[in-house]
């Protein structure tokens, strides 16, 4: 089941693997994404640590790994066309896939309901 972070990343586990991306809310805040720097395939990422960078014209934001693990695949399409993340952040605009190091880390993440509650809280 899809999980979320307070820093607006999502992660969708699939067995021992998981797909990572940024939420629709995050892409909306960033507006026109012009460049994405993804981790290298094979690189290790650790939960809560910066692992990618998303850039708009006049800002750059760190993306934090929702889970620890090893990067096994990156999405080359968003490197070619970063606007894909604006169009479909939680689908075709995924960032990378990892081999999960510690499934227990999932327990500390937010479920969909809590995440959207959090967003509404932010809006107020």
């Amino acid at each position: 089941m899809k999980k979320y972070t307070k820093t607006h990343e999502w992660v969708e586990p699939d067995g021992t693997r998981a797909t990572v991306g940024i939420t629709d809310h995050a892409q909306g805040e960033l507006r026109d994404i012009v460049f994405i720097e993804l981790p290298k395939k094979g690189a290790g990422v650790s939960q809560g640590a910066a692992c990618a960078v998303v850039e708009s014209v006049k800002a750059a934001f760190d993306i934090y790994a929702p889970l620890s693990g090893k990067v096994i695949e990156i999405n080359p399409k968003i490197e070619e066309d970063p606007s894909l993340v604006n169009q479909d952040p939680e689908g075709a605009g995924w960032f990378f896939k990892i081999e999960i190091a510690d499934a227990a880390e999932l327990d500390g993440l937010l479920d969909e309901v809590t995440y959207y509650k959090l967003l509404r809280g932010e809006a107020q």
Partner: peptide, 12 residues
């Protein structure tokens, strides 16, 4: 490519 520059990226 201004995100490389000091006025946006500061220490990075």
């Amino acid at each position: 490519l201004q995100t490389r520059e000091q006025h946006i990226r500061r220490e990075k």
